[in-house]
Amino acid sequence: MPLSPEDRFVELTDQPIDADRLTQFVTTPLSGAVILFLGTVRELTHGKRTISLDYDAYPEMALKKMNELVDETAEKWPVQKVAIVHRTGKLELAEASVAIALSCPHRGDVFDAGRFLIDELKIRVPIWKKENWSDGTTEWVHPGADAPSTNPRTEAE
């Protein structure tokens, strides 16, 4: 079933994410299962030490793609409410860069739907992180940037 605008909260923000508020937003009397996923800033990547991350986004397209992901998720699972929030700007270690909260009647579906949302967000939504390494260097993270671009699929296959 399509999810109405009042049953979804999709946002980019340069402010800390209030995860409790998102959990409350998705919890309804009809829910039997609520899940909250937080992606957080990790200090170590392949032995290199991160000081902070900078996130850049293409806001119009990012919000459009996040809403499309919500639509696809609601087609696949009996989702009642969904919240997706992604940070922009500078983030310190252990801060949440992304939060996904959603509710379904049963637990199996919230795990599957939540996994789908975060996996697809990382493939399709135009947001980028820049590593500020402890040795003073910086590096935009572009997975597979040495290979020719192939468009992320936009329809569920």
Partner: peptide, 24 residues
């Protein structure tokens, strides 16, 4: 919207270019 190489660029469209994404 992600484009394919055959698509014609419409006049007055908003065009953006970016390397692979790394959100999350």
């Amino acid at each position: 919207e992600y484009s394919s190489d055959e698509q014609v660029i419409p006049e007055f469209a908003q065009i953006a270019c970016f390397p692979p994404v790394s959100g999350g």
